[in-house]
Design a protein around this nucleic acid. Structure first.
Length: 194
DNA sequence: GCGACAG
DNA sequence: ATCTTGTCGC
């Protein structure tokens, strides 16, 4: 079980979550190096970020593994806006795998909006994290989608929440007596996310 | 009061 | 992220 200390602040997600992600990779290298993945799908952004360096970049540099940023909402940076024009482009996406580029004011393509499967309305926002091209990032993400969320991220989400529920759900459990795995902060902070 | 808001 | 209400498709 991880013990989150930093609060969630938009633009600083890596400072909250990346230490635990690095630890997971290190633990895997020690115990099961044969299972080391060739690429990581990261729940958050890569270069589509306030300072061009989201959690997927951060994790990639610290582990030297190729990383893809996969966000569920558009981070509105460099002039990118979730406005009516953007929503029009989303509605024009037809088949699963369809995309449109996310071009910042700087003229750089920061990522791609991806219709991750055919019966999906909201796109995914895919961006380069580390040692991977945007084209490969998009194809890889698309091919991992049984549903809207890529299966590796979806399973991590489902199983971690299930673990939390099983661990904190039982009165008298060690975790419950420890009393402070739940966030001290009011809202916004979650013990799950990992 | 109003807009913004990766997770 | 969490919570809630309602709808649609398999």
């Amino acid at each position: 079980m991880v013990h989150l200390k930093a609060p969630y602040v938009s633009g600083f997600l890596a400072f909250r979550e990346v230490p635990f992600l690095v630890e997971l990779v290190q633990r895997l290298q020690e115990k099961e190096p044969g299972f080391m993945p060739q690429v990581l799908l990261v729940d958050g952004n890569g270069v589509l970020h306030q300072r061009g360096f989201g959690v997927a970049c951060h994790l990639g540099v610290l582990t030297d593994l190729p990383c893809v940023g996969v966000a569920k909402k558009l981070l509105q940076v460099d002039g990118l806006e979730n406005n009516s024009l953007h929503k029009e482009k989303i509605m024009l996406l037809q088949a699963g795998g369809d995309t449109f580029p996310l071009m910042g004011n700087s003229g750089t393509v920061l990522g791609m909006a991806l219709k991750s499967h055919e019966h999906s309305t909201n796109p995914l926002y895919v961006s380069v994290g580390h040692r991977v091209s945007l084209e490969v990032a998009v194809r890889l993400t698309h091919h991992c989608c049984r549903f809207r969320i890529p299966e590796p991220i979806r399973q991590a989400d489902i199983r971690s929440r299930d673990y939390i529920r099983r661990t904190l759900g039982h009165p008298g459990s060690p975790a419950q007596r420890q009393e402070s795995l739940l966030p001290t902060e009011p809202s916004t902070t979650s013990p799950v996310s990992w």
